[in-house]
Design a protein around this nucleic acid. Sequence first.
DNA 1: CGTGTACTATTGAGTACGCAACCAACTCTA
DNA 2: TAGAGTTGGTTGCGTACTCAATAGTACACG
Lengths: 160, 160
Amino acid sequence: MTQTLTEQAIEPAVRAWTRLLRASASTTRLLSADLQEAHGLTINDFEALLVLSHAEDGRLKRVDLARNLMLTPSGITRLLRGLEDAGLVERAACASDLRVTYAQLTDAGREKLEAASSAHIASIRALFEQHFTAEELDTVAGILGKLPGVTDGDDSCSPG
Amino acid sequence: MTQTLTEQAIEPAVRAWTRLLRASASTTRLLSADLQEAHGLTINDFEALLVLSHAEDGRLKRVDLARNLMLTPSGITRLLRGLEDAGLVERAACASDLRVTYAQLTDAGREKLEAASSAHIASIRALFEQHFTAEELDTVAGILGKLPGVTDGDDSCSPG
DNA sequence: CGTGTACTATTGAGTACGCAACCAACTCTA
DNA sequence: TAGAGTTGGTTGCGTACTCAATAGTACACG
């Protein structure tokens, strides 16, 4: 007589999925306003600068940056246009393959990242460490890292 | 001489945050295409129907639905417009407060949800159970649930 | 060499969202 | 009962993204 859906217990996988969605939306909202206001950067602007700063010579093929940030190539073109206009990233050609263009972090970009980092990372820590223990942070990072593509560009900087 | 940022170890909180972002983007991308193609629903369309189906009498104040889905009121207006046009949700007035409008799941909406659920939930399970153990699912759901707003509408269906 | 296939990057069109501004209705105070 | 403040909901506008189509380049293989 009852609808199966409304009465049945929630699948663990579905619960995890909806919480992942909500958690991402919630934290993104909380963190983006400050970053935007203080430095005029979106979350993805910052992430792009951060990824580039970790890459060798501060540059990456646009297609690799796309995979890293989970954006499509067209999204990257438009994201980088803003950063290029702001002088934070510049284009660099690839001698061995004329198709590829590198996204190259400029000195200004590195400075911008340094400037924005301290406050932004402090916000991230404040939010996450307020709700999670250090162990929980590692646990959730470890688990989520198993998802396809999530650890793509983890040049993990961990000491030997 | 080196930039602190590029050389320092990654903060656990930052790592967890970026992985949360990537995980959300990755899974959303993987799950949305099928749902869109098979039933013409976006992820949030589906989530809205699902949340309403769990609510008492299949209806919720729009503002509560907004909080539940982590959308702003304006986002809800537009999301529901599509569902109303499709006949899956209808408006219902509130006798005791003329400001509020309920979002009321229709029979068609319930049927649509039933129809879309089996395939969509199977996709979710396939994706998550392929990468995670049951314990990991519970762990990650439990941890993420501590974030503000994430468990808002968990009418958790658990037997007493 | 020329031709077909795959890949990089950009563009045009469309979509989903947030923010700010707004109106209407409720509540509280007096 | 009037006025002030709060809450629910919608709209205009801007933005960040996706998808589909396109052009240029690379690299087979005949």
